[in-house]
């Protein structure tokens, strides 16, 4: 069963007296465990598509079925809960809370879910360990390198064991080596079953995905399948 189904998705933005069709009739099925890259020029709608999949945004029209459930009809609060349980985000600029330690940053989604301290502690420890960050648990973000920060962000995105991991330009703020590192980590998570969707404008990185979507003017202009 596909984990994500997008049917005739449109997302329009009203800018002044003009309507921008950021997403224009998107139809897409993503199976559980898939690895997808979304490429395309700036302004082609990649981020809009990812935000929509991540339930941060709502389609102007069309249907979005996540894990067999039509999520377009969910309330804000229900969407927030679904986001917390099902989706992990990795951002280009990491988005760590500067005043919190690495461990506390990783703990945030579990806190928001109301999980008990004991349960959280072991999950956070495990997530940090999986990303080789155990010795950095008490460090503040400004005491970490870019690559380490993004690894903390990945630990935070995966600590809830989400079905889907969304990454918007995850290597955009990293040097080549750290970038490849981060891609390797994301792909390893995919190998263990998480559905991975990566937005990138770096063709070389995009080509590592099994499915490669090329967007243009809000449409899926071309799709390539590896293997």
């Amino acid at each position: 069963m596909p984990v994500i189904q997008l049917q005739q998705i449109h997302r329009d933005f009203q800018v002044g007296d003009q309507v921008v069709h950021a997403l224009d009739d998107i139809n897409l099925q993503i199976d559980a465990g898939d690895y997808l890259s979304i490429m395309g020029p700036s302004g082609s709608g990649k981020s809009t598509l990812l935000n929509l999949i991540g339930l941060l945004d709502r389609a102007t029209s069309g249907h979005y079925i996540l894990n067999g459930q039509d999520v377009t009809v969910l309330s804000d609060t229900e969407q927030a809960t679904t986001r917390n349980k099902t989706i992990g985000f990795v951002f280009q600029s990491f988005h760590l809370v500067p005043r919190l330690s690495a461990a506390a940053n990783v703990e945030l989604p579990l806190m928001l879910a109301g999980m008990s301290v004991e349960e959280r502690r072991s999950k956070v420890a495990k997530a940090l360990e999986a990303l080789h960050l155990s010795d950095r648990a008490e460090h503040k973000p400004d005491q970490l390198s870019g690559g380490q920060r993004q690894r903390v962000a990945i630990a935070r995105a995966t600590v809830t064991e989400p079905a889907v991991l969304l990454a918007d330009e995850p290597t955009g703020n990293l040097d080549r080596k750290s970038g490849l590192d981060v891609m390797g980590i994301l792909e390893a998570l995919n190998d263990r079953g998480i559905t991975l969707i990566v937005v990138t404008h770096d063709a070389e990185l995009g080509q590592r995905a099994r499915r490669q979507l090329h967007m243009l003017d809000g449409r899926i202009h071309r799709e390539e399948q590896e293997g």
């Binding site: 804000d76 927030a80 928001l112």
Partner: peptide, 16 residues
């Protein structure tokens, strides 16, 4: 503001 956006992305409700 960006922290608020992050919290929302991590599943925080508006009320939280």
């Amino acid at each position: 503001t960006s922290e608020i956006g992050l919290l929302r992305a991590l599943g925080a409700r508006r009320s939280q």
